[in-house]
């Protein structure tokens, strides 16, 4: 089964289409075009153009006189000339004279439309004064889009790498290390950063991975709660030699009925939150399950303070 190559096409998600079309409308021809264009003059021989194509591995050469495009020679023109024994003729005699060009300031979407409509794979690009400044092909567009998408991934990668405990560098481990993280309302993009940083810190201390996982899960649940339900707040991790104590303190609006909130399956989360895979009403019970101690204080209209402790020597199975 593994030996047969499998060709697959993935159905595209609507949100991904919107990212790409957004990019394409933002992009101007000048952002995508190849600026260093190989050109020839009308006086050169078709043979010279053939050599340019071979050396530069391109299939179309604009013909330029005084910075203006006066024609274009395509690979087809060259093949025809070779076929008819006309390869030594001056370019002027066989070039296409009515060249379709495109402005450097138009959108890439328009450029694609134009190429489609005219059936051309490349268009010379002119600036507003009518001078040749580049050439655009389908390939230039595809490559640029791929670059831009990868750029998004690289930025995320960089953000993630920089995710280090922001306060007090790990000192002598006999003391308490305090790590503090602001958490903003609805900031799903950064959800879990605090937990991830604390996990990293505990790994550096060589804490048992099973213990770290309990801390990470409990802290992530608490962090998500602050993002989903509160006006924002702070996550604070106090790391002692034998335990970690995590506090999630928010700025309200408070939980009117803690007993109800603790019930598995009870949740006041929005549909948006549920679509992201959260808000199943399992958060608080899960924190309690992972932690050795668990406390929550709140009231309607008041801040919520949730504190849990996990000991580094297992007390729970």
């Amino acid at each position: 089964m593994a030996d047969t190559p499998i060709v697959k096409t993935f159905p595209t998600e609507p949100q991904n289409i919107s990212i790409i079309s957004e990019l394409m409308y933002q992009l101007k021809v000048r952002d995508v075009m190849t600026a260093n264009v190989a050109t020839a003059t009308p006086q050169q021989r078709l043979r010279d153009v053939q050599h340019i194509m071979r050396d530069r591995k391109i299939s179309g050469v604009p013909i330029v006189e005084n910075g203006r495009v006066v024609g274009i020679v395509s690979l087809d023109d060259i093949i025809r000339a070779l076929d008819k024994g006309e390869i030594e003729l001056p370019v002027a005699e066989r070039m296409t004279r009515n060249v379709v060009t495109i402005g450097d300031n138009v959108s890439v979407v328009k450029a694609i439309d134009e190429m489609e409509k005219r059936g051309f794979g490349r268009l010379p690009v002119l600036n507003k004064d009518g001078y040749l400044v580049g050439i655009i092909t389908h390939w230039d567009i595809v490559r640029k889009l791929v670059d831009m998408l990868q750029e998004v991934a690289m930025q995320a990668e960089q953000r993630e790498r920089n995710l280090a405990p922001p306060t007090s560098p790990p000192t002598d481990h006999s003391e308490v290390t305090i790590l503090e993280f602001p958490v903003e309302k609805d900031d799903f993009e950064n959800a879990g950063r605090a937990s991830s940083a604390v996990k990293k810190h505990l790994q550096q201390r060589g804490i048992d991975p099973a213990i770290i996982r309990r801390v990470a899960v409990a802290m992530y649940e608490a962090e998500i709660n602050v993002i989903i339900h509160s006006y924002g707040g702070t996550m604070t991790a106090r790391i002692y030699p034998d335990r970690i104590e995590v506090t999630a303190l928010d700025r309200g609006p408070g939980i009117p009925n803690i007993e109800l909130a603790m019930k598995e399956g009870y949740s006041t989360a929005s549909d948006r939150v549920r679509e992201m895979g959260f808000g199943a009403g399992m958060g608080l019970p899960n924190i309690k399950r992972c932690a050795d101690t668990f406390e929550i204080e709140s009231a309607a209209g008041a801040p919520t303070r949730l504190t849990f402790t996990v000991y580094f020597v297992p007390r729970k199975q």
């Binding site: 993935f10 159905p11 595209t12 998600e13 949100q15 991904n16 998408l149 990868q150 998004v152 991934a153 690289m154 930025q155 995320a156 990668e157 960089q158 953000r159 993630e160 790498r161 993009e189």
Partner: peptide
């Protein structure tokens, strides 16, 4: 046939 978003790809690389 779901495909992860680009920022998810970046995060996955790091971890």
């Amino acid at each position: 046939g779901k495909y992860p978003p680009q920022d998810a790809i970046g995060m996955a690389k790091v971890h």
